[in-house]
């Protein structure tokens, strides 16, 4: 029983080491620099720890020279020991300072080069994401960040309400998103795959449901994805989707934009290519027809406190609406 407990405890700790949301499995240059710094720190602190324990053992073991009269006895070995200790402290600190300096240089190495710009704005409780394409046009999406493999992307971080924090641990360190300020973060991913980010600064009731899906893909796939995101929504195919689009224009278009239709609200996420995303409402639900229908019917039940209100709809309208939303690929 005890053994089982110990093994499962170990599993819990070690399971954090790999995976899609971990600084210990770096998938980009910036994360690798920080990972290297972390390993250096663990090594230096490990050596210091062993030395301290060794010194302690030595002091317990050795015999103190007998006192001669009132004077403190001279102790040559102790003097030498103290000298070595001071030397080791200075050396350890020097190694750490140099390591931290080099990691810092690596993080900012790309700053002077041109890079693709992406604006990420924190909202309670979702992420607005805008890409600047080659023509200088801003292309908007939400809650899912795509990054080209091996190219540097410059993320411009802002906030529309309270302080949030952008952290995709596999790709880079974390930086706060502060209202009225612009913070910059360069990302150079080196390993393709899906990763997960999470708001890292408590920002209200649904802070825990403010996740970010991140996909690193090769440059050509990325370019065609971005071109696809830049296109306006396709005209609704079929009468049901058309009915859904008509329903959407009334109560939903005030807050949401679907490019290519009159819906142009900016209070909520851009839904032009909603169905191409992996999850709904910043990682709250997986993307599916049922998930969308549930979200529209009762957002306050799924994400209590969210600023998306429940819009009363007739069942037939709600059904048409969700089938329209699934066509927004």
């Amino acid at each position: 029983m005890k053994r089982l407990l110990r093994v499962s405890l170990l599993c819990v700790f070690v399971s954090g080491c790999g995976g899609i949301q971990s600084p210990l499995a770096p998938a980009g240059d910036q994360a690798a620099a920080l990972h290297g710094l972390l390993l250096l720190m663990v090594a230096v602190c490990g050596v210091i720890y062993l030395l301290v324990l060794g010194g302690l053992a030595w002091s317990l073991w050795r015999r103190r020279p007998a006192a001669a009269g009132d004077n403190e006895p001279s102790d040559a070995a102790l003097g030498r020991g103290l000298g070595v200790t001071a030397g080791v402290i200075v050396a350890g600190l020097t190694v750490l300072i140099v390591g931290s300096f080099l990691a810092d240089r690596a993080l900012f190495a790309t700053r002077a080069q041109p890079a693709m710009e992406v604006r990420v704005t924190g909202h309670q409780w979702w992420w607005r994401i805008e890409y600047r394409d080659a023509a200088g046009r801003w292309i908007e999406t939400a809650n899912e960040l795509h990054l080209p493999l091996g190219r540097t992307t410059r993320v411009l971080l802002g906030s529309a309400d309270v302080i949030h924090s952008f952290w995709v641990p596999n790709v880079a360190g974390k930086i706060d998103m502060i209202p009225g300020r612009r913070n910059l973060l360069d990302l150079t991913p080196r390993r393709a795959g899906w990763y997960r980010g999470q708001c890292a600064e408590f920002c209200g009731a649904q802070h825990a449901h403010m996740a970010l899906d991140v996909k690193v893909e090769d440059a050509t796939t990325f370019d065609s994805w971005l071109a696809e995101q830049g296109r306006p929504a396709a005209a609704p195919a079929g009468p049901r989707a058309a009915q859904g689009a008509a329903v959407f224009a009334g109560p939903c278009g005030i807050c949401h934009a679907v490019r290519g239709t009159p819906a142009a609200g900016r209070a909520g996420p851009d839904l032009t290519h909603l169905a191409s995303r992996r999850s709904i409402a910043a990682g709250t639900l997986p993307m599916s027809r049922g998930g969308l229908q549930g979200w529209i019917a009762q957002p306050q039940a799924l994400k209590p406190g969210t600023s998306m209100p429940a819009v009363p709809l007739r069942p037939a309208d709600a059904d048409a609406l969700s089938s329209y939303l699934t066509t927004l690929r």
């Binding site: 704005t121 309400d161 009225g180 005030i254 900016r266």
Partner: peptide, 13 residues
């Protein structure tokens, strides 16, 4: 509310 989206008159970041 300066940075909050305001319909067509968006004035946020």
């Amino acid at each position: 509310q300066k940075a909050e989206p305001q319909g067509a008159t968006w004035s946020g970041p």
